[in-house]
Amino acid sequence: MNAEVLYIQPDGTERVIGAIPGDSVMITAVRNGIGGILGQCGGSLSCATCHVFVDDHDAAGFAPISEDEDDMLDVAATDREDNSRLSCQLIVTAGQHIRVTIPKTQL
């Protein structure tokens, strides 16, 4: 079953991308030219430039936040909120429909 990610830009613009299960929300965005998710380090938890706010209904579908990810969100360029994640750590599973909102700045 196909998975989908809905990306919402800070200005409200939305785009749905079909995602390959096993890919991250970050790489799906980068490969498809979604602005505002940089993913400079390619998903190795080194840069915190793939910060997103995950729609509450979807948060439970992902692995819990690690200590490094948690610490890095503290220093992300846009202040974190309760539903902040680094999207390189959000691995899409088959059939998932995910909504994420992109913060104003990543650098």
């Binding site: 080194s46 610490d71 890095m72 220093v75 992300a76």
Partner: peptide, 10 residues
């Protein structure tokens, strides 16, 4: 120390 790195890089 990836979080400290980001703080100092900023």
């Amino acid at each position: 120390t990836p979080a400290d790195f980001l703080a100092v890089r900023a």
